[in-house]
Amino acid sequence: MQFSTWRWNRILAFFGGVGLLFFAPWTGLSPALPEWTIDVLLSVPFGLCIYGFTEQPRKVIVQVPVGTVLGIGILALYRASGVLLF
């Protein structure tokens, strides 16, 4: 198998996502930011890992972290307004 036939963009996306997931706890941002912003920021490396594993096109994979961000944002707005869903 030749190196030129490898899908380097997917390989680098996977290792970049895993690296960011392990790097995030050591950044020291957790005490300074609200909890929901950390969850939003961690959806990006999660999307990179999914892109590295699957054969889906980028447009489909982008929907996963964007949907996660929107869902967390809506829950944060509900909690900020005093409505506790769970």
Rank of each mutant, 00 (worst) to 15 (best):
V40Q: 14
I72V: 15
V40C: 11
E55T: 14
Q56P: 05
G16A: 13
L41V: 06
P31H: 00
A32S: 06
T27L: 11
V60H: 14
F23R: 02
F53R: 10
W36M: 02
E35Q: 07
G71A: 15
L48C: 12
L29G: 00
G17K: 07
V44K: 04
L20N: 10
L20V: 07
S43L: 13
S30P: 01
G28R: 01
I72W: 11
V62Y: 14
E35S: 02
G47T: 13
G71I: 12
V66H: 13
G19P: 06
P57V: 12
I38D: 01
I72G: 09
G47A: 11
W36E: 03
L42D: 04
Q56F: 04
G17Q: 05
G17M: 11
G73H: 10
W26L: 03
P31W: 00
Y51Q: 10
S30F: 00
T68M: 14
T68C: 15
W36V: 01
V62I: 15
V18T: 11
G47E: 13
W36N: 01
F46A: 03
P45D: 03
G47N: 13
L41H: 02
S43V: 12
L33F: 01
V62D: 11
Y51G: 06
V66Y: 12
P25K: 09
T54W: 11
